[in-house]
């Protein structure tokens, strides 16, 4: 029985890496622009579909599709921000919720119309390959996606803290007017930030094909998970997304094993509620609180 729990834990951690990755994108967007991106999960879905179509259409190994997903979602995110979301950056938050919700409707339903609701699986010759370790089964693919997730989060963190662009992003988040007074083109930074957030989300989506089938409606649940992750880890705090993602991955995995899914969802949401009430800055205490 304990073996089952440990296996469940491992599965949770591996999934948690993905949660952490795209939630970091979500957190970044909120932290810098104050925008709650309800279409975030759909960006993940698009990344997954890019991988699927390149796999089926061009015979590319899924891992080789990652750069395309990153590039494609970066461009999409950049344009989304520049053309639409930029209009609501200074406005009351509700505007960004509704705008991104409208985008969610458009993206997910266009995908539905174009690609139908049929779930698509991405299976390669090595899909079933596992690393056997102390009686546990660690699927190679999931292990690799986990390492990539960690690596990219680390890269993001490094970029934000040790490059001029990263500093510019931070400055824009902390004092927009002053940022302009140091020569920073704030609109461009916003677009860049959104593009970055979208790119790592696309990456996460491409890697999610190792965990589940791809279908147009898969985005919204992931968006909701992102909410939970950033509330846990602290809004706008990137390392917090890692912590939140891992915790949520573990909790999700273990609780589905122990309870029925309905009660575990109810408990998760109720805990989320309590978290917001009593510790809005997240477990780490470093989240942005209004």
């Amino acid at each position: 029985m304990s073996m089952l729990i440990i296996q469940s834990l491992i599965n949770g951690i591996l999934m948690g890496g993905i949660y952490a990755l795209y939630s970091a994108g979500f957190s970044l967007i909120f932290g810098v622009m104050g925008v709650v991106n309800i279409a975030h999960g759909d960006l993940l879905m698009l990344g997954a579909f890019i991988t699927f179509w390149m796999f089926i259409g061009l015979g590319l190994d899924p891992f080789l599709t990652l750069p395309f997903s990153v590039a494609g979602l970066f461009v999409l995110g950049y344009l989304m921000q520049r053309l639409a979301i930029n209009r609501v950056v200074g406005a009351p938050p509700i505007m960004s919720y509704i705008l991104t919700f409208g985008m969610h409707l458009m993206i997910s339903n266009l995908a539905l119309v174009a690609w139908t609701a049929d779930p698509r699986a991405v299976t390669t010759a090595y899909s079933g390959a596992n690393l056997a370790f102390l009686g546990l089964t660690l699927p190679w693919i999931k292990l690799i996606t986990f390492l990539i997730s960690l690596g990219v989060i680390g890269l993001l963190y490094w970029l934000l803290n040790h490059s001029q662009t990263g500093r510019a992003i931070q400055a824009t988040a902390q004092d927009r007017e002053m940022a302009r007074l140091t020569g920073i083109k704030v609109d461009r930074i916003y677009a860049l930030t959104f593009g970055l957030g979208a790119a790592i989300t696309g990456l996460a989506g491409s890697m999610v094909v190792a965990f589940q089938d791809v279908e147009p409606g898969m985005g919204l649940p992931y968006t909701i998970i992102a909410f939970c992750v950033v509330v846990l880890g602290g809004m706008g705090y990137i390392p917090g997304a890692l912590i939140g993602g891992l915790i949520l991955g573990i909790v999700g995995s273990v609780s589905t094993m122990l309870f029925t899914s309905g009660w575990s969802i109810a408990i998760t949401f109720f805990l989320l509620y309590l978290m917001l009430l009593f510790r809005p800055a997240g477990i780490t205490g470093k989240g942005i609180v209004e």
Binding site: F30, V36, P93, M235, I265, F269, L272, L277, P280, E290
Partner: peptide, 28 residues
């Protein structure tokens, strides 16, 4: 009573979370 102490995004997420939790309770 407790929830209206929250603001902005947090109030939105909190009310959403409660409603979802309630739905699951009704289910179960």
């Amino acid at each position: 009573w407790p929830t209206l102490r929250l603001r902005g995004a947090y109030f939105a997420i909190a009310t959403f979370a409660l409603a979802e939790a309630l739905m699951q309770v009704a289910e179960e």
